[in-house]
Simulated assay, not measured.
Amino acid sequence: MSGKLKIILTTTFTLVEQFQSTLSSPQNTSTTPEQRKGLDALPLLSAAATALKSHVTKLSLLTITSPFTPSAVATTVSTLNESVLPSLVTAALLVTPESHTAAFQNEIRILTCTGLKELFMLVKEVQTVAEDKAEKKSLEQSEKDAVTLAAGRVWEACDVLIEVAAKGVVGFVVRRAEEYRDLVKDAVEEIEGWDPDEEGDEFFDELLDDDDGKEIAHIGKDEGSEDDDDEEGKSNAALHEQKKDALRILKPIAQIYPAIISNRLKKTPSPLTPPDARTLEALMKNLQQIPEHIDEVAGALYEADRNNYTRQLRRTKGCASRAIDLVLFPWGMNQASEGQGSIGDIEDKFTNWSKTWAKVMGEVAKSIDEPKSD
């Protein structure tokens, strides 16, 4: 390997590690207005990822095509070091919580770090080929395949970045909300399919698989099992009622997802103002917590833990109510909720729907709305 190429490849490794550290640092979470002025992060990010794909293609072809030319490889890698990688990382750093939400910023930084990691592995393969060229004239097919596969992984990482940048914050939050919606749907269906009367059947069926088990079961039945059966029947009846209450509450909660996605998330303004970004962040946090609380509701039902069941249902309802309140009015109109302007003038279809939803929720949630310590 030529001395120049060795230095340039070493520089790439150092830059990638430094850039990954920068992107992973919690201190680097925002930029100044002066830094953001005149720069649109997502188009820059897409352009940089596209340039990275182009240079990676050229680099892989130069590496596997005979004769191996160190100067051509060095020129391509130098361009990566001097312009492509700095542009990519700069664009990623321009995505901030104030302009795109913290969740979107985190997504972009993770994807960018993935691209850098895959590039690191590709350059490792290039380094190996450059070292081997000193000893043999042509590459084995396995060596060519290793370079091609490494380049393909960089391509995939860049394609994901380009897609996320193209869809922007709106596409990102819609996709996340749809994921949370599906989790809620699955959890509600699981509760709906649960039968308290079948709890423990598997355990007793195993006991009855042998004669000793049958004898034990018979003895248990003789010794006061009628009282036990009566007590179990009451317990199961209570669980059936709790299950019905839970479904009456959870089904309307599940309905907030399509309503919010269609009427608010898909209409998210671009670019985001800092207040809208904060609202969106809080909204997504509540939408994310709902399926987590529903899982806890299901667990409390299965364990017949009435207190935790009630507590988790209250939390689920609270998250749903807060999510609706955060986007009760169209984007940029929430000041009306603080007494400024005429609320009637800015109400829309979702605002009116939310009123109906609140009435329904008030009726179906009476069983958990008694004042209790949470």
Rank of each mutant, 00 (worst) to 15 (best):
S2A: 11
T11M: 03
F13H: 14
L15F: 06
V16I: 14
E17C: 02
S25N: 12
S25E: 13
N28H: 12
N28P: 06
E34F: 05
K37S: 11
A41Y: 09
S46C: 11
A48P: 01
A48V: 07
A49M: 04
L52E: 01
K53D: 07
K53I: 14
H55S: 03
K58E: 06
I64A: 11
T65S: 08
T69Q: 05
T75C: 10
L80V: 07
N81C: 06
E82V: 14
S87T: 01
L88Y: 08
P97H: 14
H100F: 02
C113S: 15
G115S: 14
L122H: 05
V129N: 08
V129M: 02
E131V: 06
D132H: 06
K133I: 09
Q141N: 09
D145P: 01
V154I: 08
E156R: 11
G171P: 02
G171S: 14
A177R: 10
Y180N: 00
D182R: 15
L183P: 02
V184R: 02
V184I: 08
K185P: 04
G200A: 07
F203T: 12
F203I: 14
L207Y: 13
L207E: 03
L207R: 13
L207W: 08
D210M: 13
E215H: 10
E223S: 15
D229S: 12
E232T: 09
K243R: 02
Q255R: 13
I256D: 10
Y257R: 08
K267E: 12
T268N: 01
S270D: 15
P271I: 08
R278M: 01
T279F: 10
L283V: 02
L283P: 00
L287E: 04
I294G: 00
G299L: 15
Y309L: 06
A323H: 15
S337K: 03
Q340T: 07
E347D: 12
E347S: 07
F350G: 09
K359N: 10
K359P: 05
E363H: 02
K366F: 13
K366M: 07
